[in-house]
Amino acid sequence: MAVSKIVQLPTANRARETHEPPSIAVARRHHATELVVRNVSKSFNIDRRPLPVLQDISLVAQPGQFITIVGASGCGKSTLLRLIAGLDRDFEGEILFGGRPVSGPSLDRGLVFQDHRLFPWLTIEQNIASAFSSRPIDTATKRLLVKDHIALVGLNGFEKAYPHQVSGGMAQRAAIARALVNEPDILLLDEPLGAVDALTRLYLQEELQRIWLQKGVTMIMVTHDIEEAVFLGDQVIVLQPRPGRISKVIDVGLTQPRDREDSRILKLKKEILGEFHNPAPINYSI
């Protein structure tokens, strides 16, 4: 953990000295940041009986890839992201990031929670800045980074607002900025657009895509919205509930950004929808 922090530092400093856009800074530190989830199972104890929530989940996220996960409510999507983030270490199987087992939270792996979880007593600006409180960066760099990321998520003018003074969608964008400000190698997004209206949602999807293209960060995004999953994902993972397990992996294979009306997108959408209506029999003896 300590090592990764030191590794990150020069990136921020270099960006300041040369005023190069963050995307170039990120591209430069392209090293092994592959995420490997191997045969992960997880159960919770409810009423002293184990309740299996995830069963034999395996996936690989290549650096810079955009993976979307769809699945019914309660099938363990948030749980999976929490395991990858390192917030919960009680599971079976293996989660490797950059070749090393995940043993706790790290600034290399960002997470945007399903609820925005901004601190209500901090302004938008202070909330974003809180993310690098544990890194020894000088104040000027911090200010610059915060400013950049507020602009990135389009919250200019709301720096000094408290979370209750902005809309739900804006709070969610602030949460995304907070997760991005450390320039993580991978960003885990838990239904980041779940709480916004349909119009804002379309707009924010494109924002997310723009940020992803600009930052070159690996993204794993959980969503209920199949169209969103296909529109954004390089790869779509479909989960089946009780216990949560992978029922289908779809490689979208279209370049980004995409056209929503593209017939191939619509076809994939239908295919995934079919997955929900007639779940394919699961072969447990892989």
């Binding site: 939270p105 600034l107 601190f119 809180s130």
Partner: peptide, 15 residues
């Protein structure tokens, strides 16, 4: 929820 945010961003004790 707040404890987790603190853990995620590795807040130091004083912070």
């Amino acid at each position: 929820a707040y404890r987790e945010v603190a853990a995620l961003y590795r807040f130091k004790l004083l912070y």
